[in-house]
Amino acid sequence: MDEPLLQIRDLVVRYRRTGLFSAPPPPAVNAVSLELPTGSTLGLVGESGSGKSSLLRAILRLVPVESGTIRLDGDDWLALPEQSLRERRRAIGVVAQNPFLSLSPRLSIAEILAEPMTAQGRVPAQESRERAAEMLERCGLPGTFLDRRARELSGGQAQRVAIARALILQPKLLILDEPTSALDISVQAQILNLLADLKQELGLSMLFVTHNLKVVRHVSDKIVVMRGGRVVEAGSTEQISLAPTEAYTRQLMGYGRNLSGAEAALCRNRH
């Protein structure tokens, strides 16, 4: 079998201690290992404080990693020097939760879509505009949107722009951080359909982070459940959603079925 696109081994992320004499905080990500095979979607589930955001930031090299390795597309990703990193970053596209916060309010859509291209080197204005319009249409918006600004768009339209920006350099890995949780149900359905189409057309691999279990069950081939910085359970979507072995996973997945159980669980946790 081929090497997986993304392979994480024993990753530990720990933030700086807050004061000179305070004890170092516990690791935000603690010995996490996971694999994302090429062409598949991995769902990453966890609540606040589970370490999933720190894990993402480590993959994006926004936080220093204490130990462990990340291999991406054959590279030892953490060992890449800053200079070659900038060029290699095009292998990852990122879509964040709130498109209105992740798109600069003062730039036009054309400028927003041109930004990743210019970051990789000079692109003639005409070519950059054509590529932007093409990608925008792929994401279901007409080219006339190029001259608008993000704040003039609806939530669904803005998220389409964010997806177009993430894809414009033809990344192999698309990281989606709660891409639909700020959207309405009907818009969420449109975006999930769009992502499914794009995955097929462009042969993308996806890391899909969410707390919405219905969404994660719908999109993922495999699911990883994180809690307190550790992976508590990992496996195929069917296995995790139908026969979870960990109590915590059952509690997560059981949401919508047994509420009194949830409150009882809380009481037990406290005592």
């Binding site: 149900i185 009907s186 818009v187 969420q188 359905a189 449109q190 999930l192 359909n193 499914a196 919405n212 219905k214 969404v215 069950r217 719908h218 999109v219 979507t237």
Partner: peptide, 16 residues
Amino acid sequence: AALPDAVAKGERLASI
């Protein structure tokens, strides 16, 4: 019908 669990996994969701 637009909810992700309304259809089988991998199928298209009914969007409005």
